[in-house]
Design a binder for these strands. Sequence first.
DNA 1: TTGACAGGCAAGTGTGCACTTGCCTATAAC
DNA 2: GTTATAGGCAAGTGCACACTTGCCTGTCAA
Lengths: 106, 106
Amino acid sequence: MHLPITVPVEAEPDLFKAIGDATRRTILDELTEKDGQTLFEICGRLTVKHGLASSRQAISQHLAVLEQAGLVHTRRQGRYKFHHIDTSPLRSISERWPIDREAPNP
Amino acid sequence: MHLPITVPVEAEPDLFKAIGDATRRTILDELTEKDGQTLFEICGRLTVKHGLASSRQAISQHLAVLEQAGLVHTRRQGRYKFHHIDTSPLRSISERWPIDREAPNP
DNA sequence: TTGACAGGCAAGTGTGCACTTGCCTATAAC
DNA sequence: GTTATAGGCAAGTGCACACTTGCCTGTCAA
């Protein structure tokens, strides 16, 4: 008797890794407020508005993770690279763990 | 001139930490499928269904993180401790980063 | 053409955390 | 009362990853 062993493989590990970091979440907050920012802009606003004085490279790496997860799409225009948020991958969270409807209070 | 410096503080850091780990996500999957499991049950099902042979203590620690984040509520009954999933904290994710409505296709 | 600006590749570092093992307490069954 | 079962406290370890610094390429302005 030959039983195949099938272990479920997670669909979107990148998504959770992406939102698992506080700096990356703050970047998403920023892009929600002002979509289409450049790296330079994001760095500046993180510093001024969030007291987050990370290096340019750190933020660049974070953006790469967000892009890999599909939460950010980029558009290059000359020497500028604009970053646009895309929240649709988050849909899979509430699909995976459905949020209960409000139960009527007795 | 005395300017107060106000840096936004994140509302629910625990939530993202909780779902940031793959084992914890799998535990949530398990409780979605069969709510009210004990530690022993969860360990067994993780091993058999997910090929996840973690130690009992590792899973216990994960459950503590999930409970701290409000994603799991526990009920002790004698020597058993039943774990119940509560997905309502996940609501804050789509509130924080609203998911765009489907744009009509041209 | 030169220098400034924007962003990227690469390598290295420190530490938080997911894991382990050892030992314990409480409850239940016999 | 003794043994089995369920879960917990505690301490230690290894490594993934968020960060750094150095240097580079491409674009743009003067």
